[in-house]
């Protein structure tokens, strides 16, 4: 099993509903977020191109944050999800320094926090909060190892990219373009 997320940048309108859903579901402290919307503009006027992306931890297959963690608080669980055990984390910040996506932050209580792919919801057979609320249905979540899953089919049939693949982390959030 290999969990992954696929986000259709052509359908995303950047409404930030995923951001609010995550903050509510995971009780994210005020002023922090585990996911966010990036608006990327390229080109020069009048030939501008706009891309909207909902970004979060990429649950990399080669996660530098897990490698550099001195206590083992950052770890990978079944399905390739990268998690942090709060009472093993000393708040040294090494994982934050190591993340090319700046996807982690120091929780006001001291430990490091990040997107969990809503691991607690997956255990109940539900989708991650961000995916389940998306009003344009531009986010997909599933098992990459299953060739018949919705995300495997999308990645088979649509042009896609990952963020900073040159960082060598093998990210597992895919963007349809």
């Amino acid at each position: 099993m290999r969990y992954a997320m696929v986000i259709d940048t052509l359908k995303c309108v950047g409404c930030s509903d995923c951001v609010v859903a995550c903050q509510t579901e995971n009780n994210v402290p005020h002023g922090y977020c585990r996911d966010w919307i990036t608006e990327a503009v390229s080109g020069s006027y009048p030939n501008l191109e706009l891309e909207l992306r909902s970004e979060r931890c990429n649950h990399c297959a080669n996660p530098p944050c897990v490698r550099c963690c001195p206590t083992g608080a950052s770890h990978v669980v079944e399905g390739g999800i990268v998690l942090v055990t709060a009472d093993q984390c000393i708040g040294c910040g090494a994982c934050i320094e190591s993340c090319p996506y700046d996807a982690r932050y120091q929780h006001p209580d001291g430990y490091v926090d990040k997107c969990t792919f809503c691991h607690h919801r997956l255990e109940k057979g539900q989708q991650p909060a961000c995916v389940s609320v998306c009003p344009t249905k531009c986010m997909y979540f599933g098992d990459l190892d299953d060739p018949n899953s919705e995300i495997s089919q999308l990645l088979k049939n649509r042009k896609h990219k990952t963020l900073s693949p040159e960082a060598g982390t093998d990210p597992h959030v895919f963007y349809l373009i």
Partner: peptide, 23 residues
């Protein structure tokens, strides 16, 4: 031109706009 903006208003202490985790 390339420009990237956080439109969801991301402003996490010590991380945005630039990393300042180690002092």
């Amino acid at each position: 031109m390339e420009e990237e903006l956080f439109t969801s208003g991301r402003n996490i202490p010590n991380i945005d706009p630039s990393l300042q985790i180690w002092h």
